[in-house]
Amino acid sequence: MSTDIQTIRKLAHLSRLEFSEEKEQEMLGDLNKILNWVDKLRELDTENIEPLTHMTAEMNVMREDVAKNTITHEEALLNAPKKDSDYFRVPKVLE
């Protein structure tokens, strides 16, 4: 399967893209490579293969969500550009 320059121009128009003639030729080559690859995939026998919904068979592999303090309040304020006793100072954003 392959395509032509008119198809590239139509796709570019629909996508609101503009290509120079050199880029059109480059895009034509790339699109033809993609279409050839898809044709190659069609040669595979997938009759008894179930579609994938996930890339692995593992389900719900998550860590336990445990709340904990990783740094102290003082450590958090050490790198603050501005601080006021126990709080961060930030510019006023609301009236």
Score class of each variant (00 low, 15 high):
T53P: 04
N32A: 01
D39Q: 10
S20C: 02
E50T: 07
K33Q: 12
Y87E: 02
E18S: 08
D84L: 11
N32R: 03
Y87F: 07
N69T: 11
R16M: 02
I34W: 12
E74V: 04
K83D: 03
T7R: 11
L28K: 02
T72P: 02
L52W: 04
L41G: 06
S85T: 09
L28W: 04
N36K: 08
M27D: 00
S20G: 06
D45G: 02
T3Y: 04
I49Q: 07
E58G: 08
D30Y: 12
V93R: 14
M55R: 09
L78P: 03
T70H: 08
M27W: 03
V38N: 07
E58S: 13
T46F: 12
L17Q: 01
T53Y: 11
Q6F: 11
P51K: 05
L41E: 10
K10H: 05
L94F: 13
D4N: 15
E21I: 01
E24S: 03
D45E: 06
A80C: 07
N69V: 09
N69R: 10
L78C: 06
I71R: 03
E26P: 00
V61E: 12
P91I: 05
K33S: 12
M62W: 11
K92C: 07
T53F: 09
L44Y: 15
A67T: 08
H13Q: 14
T7S: 14
R16F: 04
N32W: 02
T7Q: 14
T70A: 07
D39H: 06
E26H: 01
L78R: 09
L94W: 12
M55P: 05
T72F: 04
V90R: 05
H73R: 05
T46H: 11
T72I: 04
S85I: 10
K33I: 08
P51W: 00
M27Y: 00
L78I: 08
K82A: 14
E50L: 13
A57S: 14
K83A: 06
P51G: 03
N36P: 03
E21T: 04
E64H: 07
K83C: 04
T7F: 12
S85H: 09
E26D: 06
K92V: 09
L78D: 09
A76Q: 02
D45Y: 00
L11T: 02
T3P: 03
P91Q: 10
A67V: 12
T46R: 07
N60D: 15
K23F: 03
V93A: 14
N48K: 12
L14C: 10
K82P: 04
E18D: 05
S15A: 15
E75M: 02
A57Q: 15
L77V: 04
K92M: 08
D65I: 09
R89W: 03
N32D: 12
L44E: 14
I71L: 05
A80R: 04
E95W: 07
E22F: 02
K10A: 07
A80D: 02
D30R: 15
M27I: 06
E26W: 01
R63P: 00
S85E: 13
N48D: 10
L11I: 08
S2A: 10
K92Y: 02
L17R: 03
P91T: 11
M59A: 15
R42C: 10
N60T: 10
D39P: 01
